[in-house]
Design a protein around this nucleic acid. Structure first.
Lengths: 231, 231
DNA sequence: CAGTGGTCTAGACCACCGA
DNA sequence: CGGTGGTCTAGACCACTGG
């Protein structure tokens, strides 16, 4: 049981979405509608509306007559999202370089510094770090007039968001991420669009490299089984 | 009033979606929930579920306390989708070229020929032409293992789908589209990945060039007013 | 069989809009 | 004021699952 603010649906939606994206609800975990009805003290209608929404976004799998489950991560999907991001973001960053003003450079520098400060803290808030990481990338999308693309990519990235979260909380290799951001910054600072593609590629593929071995061991329960391996 | 098959929701959803995408329901047109209740003889619950779904996909705008409307097209969004597609599809097509077998070449040739045949028909079915156009592009996505990306792009393309439909039904410049497909085919056939980028760019921007002038005249009611023009 | 989700009805109350 | 959507309850019946 929890307290029930007005507009239950919206609250419940945010609540569950946050728990899923921050991996508080584990991929694969089962969640029953009736349980949720009790937990939030509401009837099935708002719960179902939330579940439909989450399942529409790919965060939840509703299996008829069996149950509802937090969606597993699909490694292939994640690879493809990264492929797409590399293509799009390289183009955007190349567009951004000639548009980058000293003020924007300072903004980027500022984000990097905040991440460095955050990293030093004990009881480090990983969500906050993730947030800053997003902000960094957001700068060039918005500056180059691709605001809508950034939002679209964010929405399509549901799996990838949890993957990045996993990268951050499980690997905790924050210095590597910051280092890559610095390299990107250097490129922008020196106005060298030719160097964009390989660096973006390296940066966006970073999570895969860092997590690769563990996906098949400790973290395997979070991922969809590869089709045709065993059985 | 219409006949009411089982599983009203799904039927109603398909029905409305088709009518919107094929421009039978005009962008901007108002649609009331209660009207739909009568038309399909169901209560508000299934209607609302359908409306939510459509609005979630960006096909519908639900304006609280005023009404529901078929979403207007947003020219800027369409440009950005095209920008993204150019980046992604160029990469995919470059990957595809070395993977293209003679069998696949025949498949592409076959699609082009079908389009040419279709074009000669009187009472030409534009939806069918659109369908073939999609199939052509789909080939390289699927072959290069980017099946999921293709579906993702299709889903993100709701506005763009109607834009392409507009291009096909309003401009009817089918020879231009076919000609571009032939050029792309030639590139593939000769295994010339360097030529991909500009050609993809030309092809995907084609619709904009063809429609450009009319967007501000006959078709202006279908588009969101540019912010800050008049008023 | 009990439990799950799938679907729907009927009806309620609210907030806001425009005439 | 009547019409619109926003939200929710309560409860019904169904189809399928799994012990």
């Amino acid at each position: 049981m929890e307290n029930i603010p007005v507009n239950s649906s919206e609250y419940i939606y945010r609540c569950l979405k946050e728990e899923i994206l921050h991996l508080k609800l584990k991929p694969g975990q089962s969640i029953s509608e009736n349980e949720l009805c009790k937990r939030f003290s509401v009837s099935r209608t708002p719960i179902r509306s939330v579940m439909q929404r989450l399942s529409g976004e790919g965060l939840m799998n509703i299996v008829p007559y069996k149950g509802s489950f937090v969606a597993l991560l699909n490694f292939n999907d994640i690879e493809q999202i990264i492929y797409m991001r590399i293509a799009v973001e390289s183009a955007v960053l190349r567009d951004f370089i000639p548009l980058c003003t000293p003020l924007l450079e300072e903004k980027l520098r500022y984000i990097i510094r905040k991440q460095m400060v955050l990293m030093e803290e004990k009881d480090l808030d990983m969500s906050r770090f993730y947030e800053l990481d997003s902000q960094f990338h957001e700068v060039w999308f918005k500056t180059a007039g691709h605001n809508m693309l950034w939002e679209l990519i964010q929405k399509s990235e549901v799996d990838y968001t949890r993957f990045r979260m996993l990268d951050i909380v499980a690997v905790q290799n924050l210095p590597a991420i910051i280092e890559e951001h610095k390299e990107l910054f250097q490129l922008i600072h020196e106005r060298r669009p030719e160097g964009v593609q390989p660096l973006i590629e390296k940066h966006l593929n970073g999570g895969i490299h860092r997590l690769q071995t563990r996906i098949h061991t400790e973290l395997r329960d979070y991922f969809q089984p590869e089709s045709g391996t065993d059985e």
